[in-house]
Design a protein around this nucleic acid. Sequence first.
DNA 1: GTCTATACACCGATAGAC
DNA 2: GTCTATCGGTGTATAGAC
Lengths: 194, 194
Amino acid sequence: MATNRRMGQKGSAVGSAMLDAAETILREEGYGALTSRRVAELTGVKQRLVYYYFATMDELIVDTFRRLSVRELERLGGALGGERPLREVWDVCIHTGDSRMIAEFMALAHRNAGLRAEVIAFIEQSRRMQVAALERAMTAAGKGTPALPPVAAAILASSAALAVLREAAIGVEMGHAELLDVIGSFIGRLEPGG
Amino acid sequence: MATNRRMGQKGSAVGSAMLDAAETILREEGYGALTSRRVAELTGVKQRLVYYYFATMDELIVDTFRRLSVRELERLGGALGGERPLREVWDVCIHTGDSRMIAEFMALAHRNAGLRAEVIAFIEQSRRMQVAALERAMTAAGKGTPALPPVAAAILASSAALAVLREAAIGVEMGHAELLDVIGSFIGRLEPGG
DNA sequence: GTCTATACACCGATAGAC
DNA sequence: GTCTATCGGTGTATAGAC
């Protein structure tokens, strides 16, 4: 009962291996090199088989992002349930998947509607989770209405994390230490101790 | 005296038109579509001529970024000399060139060493200018050692501006109003009035 | 400066055998 | 499921005429 439609199961070993290959290619060579032939080569099969598992290259791209997105949201969910959620959510953000791959997906999302929908859903869901962590910590810290709305703090922190990763990937580090220090003490004030 | 080397002058009308075409293609179709044939088509010449003005496509890409980079740094320089430099520098950041094009250059920089060097120089130079504006404003506001180091504020603000532009380009706006409000009042506190 | 023409490789996608 | 074979199209880059 492996197949009752015209295509192979996405969850199959070969299909997963193709998604692995797609990640590697995006990270190391960019979306310009993400071709059915290159995916087949890295997977150790013939090009034709890629079109057995994925109807089009666009579909393969969307599935690659979706798998990463699910993993990342699971990591965020785990962080939210931890001892010091704010610290742990920040750790997830600053150790997020390779920034080169992120850059490729950002660029691709502008011209692949299916991918764009997935990226939008991911951004909004992860922002919601970050806001939840911030709201709880701010409430626990016992301030009234904070000068910094949680959602603004979430954008500031997540965009700064992305910027640090992106710049580090090309060799820029100006101000990174100071920035990490500011975030660290902001978290330390809201969520002290262990 | 138009040519005494093997290639056309970059500053010529045709060469500039090719850079214009490259910008349009990057913005609307992505780097995968930035080909010598497409540049020639948009410029209204034959493909062969692109290689008269640029030795390789990589060189054309670097020159396209450099021209944009120079323009952006000039805008920042102008903002620094204005009446309310902090406000004006922020306006430059939040109205910076198309975020789709930026995404393409980010992705390309990972695999084009010449472009990477230009991107690094641009980031560091613009950060220096932003820090200068912040330091002056913080000094004028007459605080002691600020809790927020100017370089950290520069990263926070510029990365948030990029994030807002990037997300708006794909249709996300969650928290943007709150964030813009936070930045606006931060600037208003450091640089009140007109 | 700008052109025609071309070499050679690679692309997405499909037909159909086993 | 996986393969061979193939279609029509596009890519970078170059040779050389005018």
